[in-house]
Design a protein around this nucleic acid. Structure first.
Length: 894
RNA sequence: GCGGACGUGGCGAAACUGGUAGACGCAAGGGACUUAAAAUUCCUCGAUCCUAGAUCAUGCGGGUUCGAUUCCCGCCGUCCGCACCA
């Protein structure tokens, strides 16, 4: 059988005289209803609406040029929630905007000689039109792009406020330099030693950078994760690990004077295991430690070793198994609890300068790295913790360190304690001792989280509103002088920052002293732009960054939907920003996103020719099915290898464009398909069969409604509580209850299954309406059918809003479905008076018992014992045990 | 290496706090309608055994329980995150 990729459909019913209904034509209907919603301004949220609010937001897109089918799944999920909540009576805010600054616009400028601004706004125009064909219930009146002067103006105001509040800093530090993009990257943007966007190997450079002091909030950002109970556990865990809190001590070790270089008298280390202090056998410092640098000046071998460590440091990913290496500096330190005991100081390649103090004490018995190191250099290994019940006299550590809980040994006054008690004992002793006027030991909480470097040496970003003055130092641009606008006349013929080489832009007068000064030419990391857009949506017309009243009413976002790839960066930055905005008076809350949902991707098979070219789905033909499928290239007729399901990407050409679907099947079909079958958090595979199946269902609903319409138009809807029609009403009300619950849980695939069931259940009663029985007798059936079909349309509406409107008209309904209320289910119709209880014998199902719902335990038991198959199984004996689980099951043990 | 998630028909999956395993859909096979196709519609569809019916089936091996896809222990596999964090 040959399958053609896309089928054409005749939209007129093809010559079936029994059914006069035309096929549903989305190409005509969809634009009509989009226009109707638009004209009614249905989705424009008002800030003065008294109804309870609901804020649903999908992560806004980068305007790369085309909307991707993967985007639309994300937006469809949000749209189902938005439409459902609107129907439930909420004042819903569901906005859309564009994450519009960033590198690709500059790349386009370099390659195609288009100005980044022009490129970006053109892309936005195209993508906006594409999005609109999906019939999303978005409030387009609040739309903005982060590259709008209006938006980045307010971002500069925030930057100045943060600066005044001490939340912005500037420091010279080692940064990750991306040699391809010629810019600095945050730690989070370096993945396996490579730039997250360019993929180039990142170099290490010293630069003066602007920082947001996210570490000021480290403790709070960590603790508040506990309260984010509507976030996926996975994301919460990832954030906890990223922040990486540890409790330990700073310990200052005195240097043995004869071995110390000029001016150095102590070595400060950070440790989480002061309890193992008596197991120490060496000190290790980072190659970049000041002491190492000082010693290297007069020790060439050491200098060489440090250089080697630095090189490994930058390409660490490949060297995960890198051997532990050290260099004995000759320096020695005194043990703080035994002045007679001195230890050697090494420079070691596994000690990081930017964690703790860049120096550690090595306890080989309790740490695998230290043990490897000690074994290599013949340093002593003294076990100080042994497992409970082991023998202290014989317990030894040779190849494997013991890092678990246990009992202290070989540790003088700590012997016999638990490590925890020993920790406290050592902490107390060291705290009360002094060295150079400071305590020898101090308790200290340390974080893995670093401050957020936001300087980027780029043009297409928000200018940092700061001025460098020789006399006054760093001076913020006065608010009255904001915005600092990007100049339009820039050249992209060379790498580097066009702002920096612009002839006039950076020359300004110092706002303080009036002398010649220089503008900051760095722009902000684009993650800054997306760290507060959700707040801006609450009052995008406001002159200040926010209207605090509006922001506080709308925020937090009730349901935020986006990709798992933002689990750390974007979400952590946004949580920081919200706190910083709180502390500068722009909002009154700390957590921006109450509910978070991370959706799966849309994936597609890949196709590749023998000579390695990727082919698009449209360039091939598939024959056969299952494992026997064979693909051939249309143009050449040559065989094509069918590859793995992968995230749709341009490079692999396995993309499906939204137009492919909307132009043939319509947006409703695409929306329905993308939410069917796969749970929303999982990936969904785009298949043509699946899309065609979804479209069949669109037509099926349309036919069902068309079939019913003639018989129920003008009939008042009313549920049937008795008689044959009751089954119809029960099916509808049960589905109504279930679908509502499923949408609340974002279980769209389950909701869709329930709607399928309802359509199956309604088919027979609807068909029966036409079979001309006496009108009086049919009246309850017609009323019940009317009600059930209305419920069906309401249930379908969040998923397939255009179809729902068209069906509503066919039924002679009034008003727009999109403006209508979600019906309420009748509790009496969702329970059955008679239930079917499965009956098990010894845990295996042997039959059913149909019995009144309210039958008590003994009645159930009596009825069960009378059942034929039970009597047969018992064969006259009495069961040893009868287990009756009310409303669930009966189990007999014989 | 550390941490986490997951593993159910040919496929996507469902099964609420332990209670009928496979709802719903896709694919497949067969029939009806049609000159024919499309569309529609009806039936079959986890495996094994000869039908009735039974037995076996939720990655593998154990355990707890009247009863386990669900809880516990140990393996195997897949995916994700972190990665010398002292």
């Amino acid at each position: 059988m040959v399958k053609v990729r896309r089928q054409s459909f005749c939209f007129l019913s093809c010559e079936n005289p029994a059914m006069a209904t035309e096929r549903y034509n989305p190409r005509v209907s969809e634009p009509r209803w989009q226009k109707a919603w638009d004209e009614a301004k249905l989705f424009e949220a008002r800030n003065d609406d008294a109804r309870p609010k609901y804020y649903v937001l999908e992560m806004f897109p980068y305007p790369s040029g085309r909307i991707h089918i993967g985007h639309t799944r994300n937006y469809t999920m949000g749209d189902v929630v938005a439409r459902y909540k609107r129907a439930k009576g909420y004042n819903v805010l569901h906005p859309m905007g564009w994450d519009a600054f960033g590198m690709p616009a500059e790349n386009a400028a370099m390659q195609n000689k288009v100005h980044p601004k022009e490129w970006t706004y053109q892309n936005i125009a195209v993508m906006r039109d594409q999005l609109k064909t999906f019939g999303l219930s978005l409030d387009w009146s609040r739309e903005f792009a982060t590259c709008d002067v209006d938006y980045y103006h307010r971002q500069q105001m925030l930057f100045v406020d943060f600066f005044d509040k001490g939340l912005v800093g500037r420091k010279t530090s080692k940064v990750n330099w991306d040699p391809v993009d010629q810019t600095v990257l945050a730690n989070e943007q370096v993945i396996d030693g490579r730039g997250w966007r360019s993929g180039a190997e990142v170099e290490s450079r010293e630069l003066a950078q602007w920082f947001f002091k996210i570490t000021d909030y480290a403790e709070d950002l960590l603790e508040a994760i506990d309260g984010l109970d509507q976030w996926p556990e996975k994301v919460r865990l990832m954030q906890r690990n990223w922040i990486g809190r540890s409790e330990g001590m700073l310990v200052r070790w005195a240097l043995v004077a004869e071995t110390a270089p000029d001016g150095a008298s102590e070595l400060e280390v950070y440790t989480t295991r002061p309890d193992t202090l008596f197991g120490a056998s060496f000190m290790a410092i980072a190659a970049d430690h000041p002491l190492a640098k000082q010693l290297a000046e007069t020790n060439e071998a050491l200098a060489n070793f440090c250089d080697e460590c630095r090189r490994i440091g930058t390409s660490a990913a490949a060297l995960e198994t890198a051997e532990k290496k050290g260099f004995d500096t000759g320096l020695r330190v005194r043990h703080p609890l035994d002045p007679e005991w001195t230890l050697p100081v090494y420079v070691a390649n596994f000690v990081l300068m930017d964690y703790g103090t860049g120096a550690i004490f090595g306890c080989p018995a309790g740490d695998q790295r230290d043990l490897d190191f000690a074994n290599k250099y013949g340093l002593p290994v003294i076990p100080v913790v042994m497992p409970e019940g082991a023998d202290a006299a014989t317990f030894q550590i040779t190849e494997e360190a013991y890092a678990d809980d246990g009992v202290m040994i070989n540790s003088r006054f700590l012997d016999g304690m638990t490590p925890k008690a020993a920790f406290d004992e050592v902490a107390n002793r060291l705290s009360s001792m002094a060295i150079n006027g400071r305590p020898v030991g101090e308790r200290k909480v340390n974080f893995r989280l670093r401050d957020w470097g936001v300087s980027r040496q780029r043009y297409w970003g928000c200018p940092i509103p700061m001025i460098h003055c020789e006399a006054c130092g760093i001076v913020p641009v006065p608010k009255a002088d904001l915005p600092v606008k990007l100049p339009d006349d820039v050249e992209f013929d060379r790498p580097g920052n066009p702002l920096d080489r612009h002839p006039t832009w950076k020359h300004v007068k110092c706002p303080k002293c009036g002398s010649d000064a220089r503008r900051e030419t760095d722009t902000m990391d684009t993650f800054v732009d997306s760290s507060w857009y959700f707040a801006r949506f609450t009052a995008p017309w406001e002159n200040n960054p926010t209207d605090p009243k509006a922001a506080n009413e709308w925020l937090p976002v009730d349901q935020y939907i986006g990709g798992i790839e933002h689990a750390i960066l974007h979400l952590l930055y946004s949580r920081f920003f919200t706190r910083a905005m709180r502390d500068t008076g722009h909002v009154a809350l700390a957590e921006p996103f109450k509910g978070l949902f991370t959706q799966g991707m849309v994936v597609h098979e890949t196709y590749r020719t023998a000579d390695g070219r990727w082919l698009a789905p449209g360039e091939i033909r598939i024959e056969g099915s299952g494992d026997a499928r064979i693909a051939t290239e249309l143009e050449s007729g040559k065989p094509v290898a069918i590859g793995a399901l992968e995230k749709m990407s341009k490079s692999k050409k396995n993309t499906v464009s939204p137009e492919d679907i909307t132009e043939s099947f319509g947006a409703d079909t695409a929306r329905w398909f993308m939410l069917s079958d796969s749970p929303p958090e999982r990936d969904v595979e785009w298949t043509d069969d699946g899309a065609a199946g979804a479209h069949r269902f669109v037509q099926r609903v349309w036919r069902l409604v068309g079939e019913a319409a003639d018989h129920i138009r003008g009939v008042a809807p009313e549920a049937a509580h008795e008689g044959a029609a009751q089954a119809t009403s029960k099916a509808a009300h049960k589905a109504l209850k279930a679908v509502g619950e499923d949408i609340e849980r974002l279980a769209f695939n389950r909701a869709i299954a329930r709607i399928h069931e309802l359509v199956n259940d309604l088919q027979e009663p609807v068909s029966a309406l036409g079979k001309g029985a006496d009108e009086g007798v049919n009246e309850p059936a017609r009323k019940a059918a009317r009600e059930a079909v209305e419920i069906l349309i309401r249930l379908v509406a969040p998923f397939m809003p255009h179809l729902a409107e068209e069906c509503w008209v066919a039924m002679g309904g009034e008003g727009l479905v999109a403006a209508g209320a979600w019906p309420e289910f009748d509790p009496a119709l969702v329970v059955d008076n008679e239930i079917v209880l499965p009956v098990q014998i010894n845990g295996k199902k042997r039959g059913d018992l149909t019995i009144a719902r309210d039958a008590d335990q003994s009645a159930v038991q009596d009825a069960v014992l009378k059942l034929d198959f039970v009597q047969k199984a018992l064969d006259g004996a009495t069961p040893r045990k009868v287990i009756v689980v009310p409303q669930r099951i009966v189990n007999l043990v014989v």
